[in-house]
């Protein structure tokens, strides 16, 4: 299953330990996280589900392409890292 990890900077707002989730896209993986920890949603995506402007998601070390619908594909061994961009904020 894809493994999702989060920037330590998020932890003081919402506790988000690394987790393994079911999902074949970034959207599906994050929705799985949000279903367990609903408060995390607003910290990572905006009210329309797009990635916040100064957040980023890397899959296997590469930034995702689709920041709006989060359609980038995940395989079973994907390493997903939700990070805080150094821009903005």
């Amino acid at each position: 299953m894809p493994r999702v990890s989060f920037t330590p900077n998020l932890q003081r707002h919402v506790e988000l330990p690394p987790c393994e989730v079911v999902g074949d896209s970034v959207r599906a993986a994050l929705e799985a996280v949000f279903s367990e920890r609903p408060r995390a949603r607003g910290y990572i995506v905006d009210e329309h589900g797009a990635l916040r402007a100064h957040m980023n998601v890397f899959v296997n070390g590469t930034p995702i392409k689709d920041r709006v619908t989060l359609s980038d594909v995940l395989d079973e061994r994907a390493e997903v890292f939700v990070m805080q961009a150094l821009s903005g904020g």
Partner: peptide, 8 residues
Amino acid sequence: NHGHFGVK
């Protein structure tokens, strides 16, 4: 306003 993490 957390900037990166939005308004709360």
